[in-house]
Design a protein around this nucleic acid. Structure first.
Length: 570
RNA sequence: CGGGGUGUAGCGCAGCCUGGUAGCGCAACUGCUUUGGGAGCAGUGGGUCGGGAGUUCGAAUCUCUCCACCCCGACCA
């Protein structure tokens, strides 16, 4: 592609309402433009990247035996009524009426449609297993779309659906997709992790998320440093401490703690460490009363775990301050388990403390050297906290490290949920009616593009992995329009690259070099060649990789070999 | 949905308080010069001041109303 024939739409200034780097850089590079909240056009540059992602996905899905099809984004309400999701789905489902006042929606996902296709097309177990997939636009009416294409309302997703006659078959289809996803993410050239998204993790995993690692990721993921355990932090069990609780060493005393209402206040004011104190949270009970959740001061409540406790309202609701004052007699900020007469759940780590600091259940007072069993009831401890870096891995092997990730893929087993509710049946070996077992496999195609940028950028712009780059190689001739020598060298190199199938970009704009360089860096082209009068006179060209500190001069007569080596071509 | 904020040229903003018919930087266009890291000079074009209604001799500016967008929260997973 020649710059003079392309729509290069780079922006010097950063649009003000783009919060995260990937959004800023995609706008500045001229990849996308916004039309409404969470709705974007993909300009030619952005589309080139999108297509690279799609192509890798398509090739690996095909290689795994999945069959591509294309389903509508407009979906009649009847199918959703059948599955029961017309009523279950919240306002995230964009509902509309057509001119005949018939209800419909814009598909946020396609289980209903694929199941409808399946039940009309497939009648026998002998046609199984089957795996259909599509790469298609979805719409989810997010309450608050943000971060550009990372959390948009309209987005492109690869979704695949497998059908098997029995659970074993479903597991096999799932395993094949698991491997296909590994192949896909390997080819993206991104640093990623496959992560268990299943809470119990009993037996084989039935749900995995694929996360691109990035500091800005919305999800925290926990990894074992000595085994391949990896899971979304929400689901990771915090093991009870192995050590015995130490015996009390000092009598309990009450101290005045004016103005100290948080763990940080206490740590500063009393000179105790957060991990020697207790944090007492009050949540709504399922009977309308209150329950206490007690954690070590430096730990964080895990909402999913708390919701599963007997007696705690689900979804979890933290109690209103007014209600706490009314029922417990004192304000938040000086609560503690000693003398607290509501049901109390104590985290394992909190229950292991002795001589701890906690609220005295009197305003502006705390207790020092409080002890379980002696000063209050011996607790039966539960797991209600998020794991932290350094905790033991739940599988007993190694310690946990915590990284942040962006969820870009999810595979899971649906079982018979849709085949049953929508009466999608086949005849089995005995000639009896059977409900197939389904699996469902998604990749957020547009999100992959943003995640790749979140993970790979610097002050100058995007740094694409070779496999996703809109162009693999940029040729920057200096004085292309003035120097016959430069023009010939650049054109010749350009034509050669094209003939070899390299995605090459020739910057033939009559611009100063600095402008060309910064544009090419902004849009993230991985490799750059420069031809100049000066260099050519010395029989040299210049090469710089996008991540290289500086450029290097290369002998002109070896340009061909250089390119062959760079792009690993025969 | 609650709270906060913003809408003025393609982008970033000033002007609004105190009403007098719109300005700056970047970008664009023309010409000349310049040409190895976002050039210089000279000139040019471009705005329903988010929409509507009102107050006023006169509204970007004051009032009411609607809309769009952004941020925080809640919701959703």
């Amino acid at each position: 592609m020649r710059a003079s024939r392309f729509h290069l739409a780079t922006l010097k200034e950063t649009p003000v309402d783009a919060e995260i780097v990937s959004h800023q850089l995609m706008l500045r590079a001229g990849m996308i433009r916004r039309h409404a909240a969470g709705v974007y056009s993909w300009l030619p540059l952005g589309l080139r990247v999108l297509r690279k992602v799609e192509q890798i996905v398509r090739e690996e899905m095909d290689a795994a035996g999945a069959l591509e099809l294309l389903m509508p984004s407009f979906q009649p309400s009847e199918l959703w009524q059948e599955s029961g999701r017309w009523d279950q789905f919240g306002p995230e489902l964009l509902r509309l009426k057509d001119r005949h006042q018939r209800d419909a929606c814009i598909g946020p996902t396609h289980e209903e449609i694929i199941t409808d296709i399946f039940r009309r097309e497939v009648a026998s177990y002998r046609q199984l297993p089957l795996n259909f997939y599509q790469i298609q636009t979805k719409f989810r009416d997010e309450i608050r779309p943000r971060f550009g294409v990372m959390r948009s309302r309209e987005f492109i997703m690869k979704d695949a659906y497998s059908f098997d006659i029995d659970p074993q078959g479903m597991q096999r289809s799932y395993d094949i997709m698991d491997q296909a996803y590994v192949n896909i993410f390997d080819r993206f050239g991104l640093d990623y992790r496959a992560v268990s998204a299943d809470s119990g993790a009993i037996g084989g995993s039935t749900s995995q998320e694929f996360h691109v690692l990035a500091d800005s990721g919305e999800d925290a993921i926990a990894f074992s440093d000595e085994s391949d355990f990896a899971a979304n932090i929400e689901t990771v069990e915090a093991l009870p401490p192995a050590a015995e609780r130490a015996a009390p060493t000092a009598p309990m005393e009450t101290v005045d703690t004016p103005g100290m209402h948080t763990i940080e206040d206490l740590a500063r004011g009393l000179g105790v460490s957060a991990r020697q104190s207790l944090k007492t949270l009050i949540a709504e009970a399922d009977d309308g009363n209150l329950v206490a959740l007690v954690l070590r001061g430096d730990h964080e409540l895990n909402v999913l775990k708390a919701e599963r406790l007997d007696g705690v309202a689900s979804p979890l609701r933290m109690a209103q301050r007014e209600k706490i004052i009314e029922l417990l007699g004192n304000d938040i900020g000086s609560l503690g388990p000693v003398g607290l007469n509501i049901p109390t759940f104590v985290d394992h780590a909190a229950a292991q403390l002795s001589d701890f600091v906690c609220g005295a259940n009197q305003d502006e007072k705390h207790l020092l050297n409080a002890n379980w069993g002696r000063d209050c009831e011996e607790p039966e401890s539960v797991d209600i906290r998020n794991v932290v870096e350094g905790d033991p891995s739940p599988n007993g092997k190694g310690r946990l490290k915590i990284l942040r990730g962006i969820e870009v893929g999810h595979i899971f087993q649906l079982g018979q949920k849709y085949s049953e509710s929508m009466q999608a049946t086949v005849l089995d070996e005995q000639g009896k009616t059977a409900f197939p077992y389904m699996g469902c496999y998604g990749i957020g195609v547009t999100r992959v593009v943003a995640a790749a940028i979140e993970q790979n950028h610097d002050d100058n712009g995007i740094i694409w992995p070779d496999t996703l780059a809109p162009f693999q190689l940029a040729i920057c001739p200096i004085n292309y329009h003035k120097s016959e020598l430069v023009r010939q060298a650049a054109d010749e190199c350009y034509e050669q690259c094209r003939a070899r199938g390299i995605d090459v970009f020739l910057d033939d704009r009559p611009l100063r070099p600095g402008v060309m360089f910064s544009d090419m860096e902004l849009i993230g082209v991985p490799h750059r060649l420069v031809f100049s009068e000066r260099g050519l006179a010395a029989q040299q060209f210049e090469y710089k990789g996008r991540r290289d500190e500086s450029a290097s001069d290369q002998p002109l007569d070896q340009l061909n070999d250089f390119l062959v080596q760079l792009f690993a071509m025969p």
